[in-house]
Amino acid sequence: MDNKAGSFWLPPQASTNAAELDELFAFVMDINYVFFAIIFGMTVYLSVKYRRRRADQMATSDVDHSLLWEGAWTFIPLMLCVVMFVWGFRVFLHQNTAPEGAMQINVTAQKWSWAFNYDDGQTTSDLYVPAGRPVKLVMKSKDVLHSFYVPDFRVKSDVMPNRYTSVWFEALAPGQHRIYCTEYCGKQHSGMYRTVHVLSEEEYAAKKQKGFEGKPEGLDPVAWGKQLYTKYGCNACHSLKEGERLVGPSFWGLVGREGVTAAGEKYVADEQYINESIMEPMAKVVQGYAPAMPSFKGQIDDDQMNALIAFMKTLK
């Protein structure tokens, strides 16, 4: 099946759920148009027709209620509401219940990046899914609330630190779609967007084998490290400019820098220290900074770590 282009109101349909939701949306919007036309039309018509022509003109009628009419405009909207409610709940239940055998991917959200964890143990910062297969995401947050939203798939669910939530979808065709965070989570809330890569079954299998986010061929480690710096959201907290302080210290001149931890220990920022800072950030917290650095344990593998450090070394 192919993706369907977007409309005036809605973005493209790229999942099986989207068509179902859009049909309901169209129905509700039709009700909106009709009622708006009635009320707007009536208000304008009556205002013009019964406008005051002489200053002392009085109204010509003292009708002040009509059980029949009022009953009608209570009953008809009520019935339409019942229809919207029932239809809405059915769509919701369907969207909430993943089909048996859906492929599971675990998702960890943290300020301000996503980590997607596949059955073979690899972790990515973008999401990779095959087309035409139901996928279930089981999600948890490491810190505050986030919300996983893919407009083109019409899926959304909050991601919480103390319980698992899930969404499921079946992507229609290969392509790329935006992931947004829709629960306010601080400074880089709007920077938490990533991409879902929908791949054909064959391509999916092949890429998975090689590692979805392994070093792209022909790219040198430094350039790759620079990519990873934004991919993992380090840029939200670490500047590349000399001395610029964001949430954390700048990466400029970091490698080899001498510093003091909050506990008063001296350290030199060598490879070992940098590795530890990223994997166990709470072990040594830099003096003068909040312990706000999230751990990337299980997300950044050795190759990526080397690339990141290679990139940092160039910053001087």
Binding site: N32, I39, G88, V91
Partner: peptide
């Protein structure tokens, strides 16, 4: 009259939000 027109739009657009199926997409 502004109220009448604008509030009508405000109220009606509450319907796709109260409809739980479409709220998934529109929430937040």
């Amino acid at each position: 009259l502004s109220f009448l027109i604008l509030f009508t739009i405000g109220g009606l657009t509450g319907l796709p939000l109260g409809t739980i199926g479409t709220d998934i997409h529109l929430h937040d």
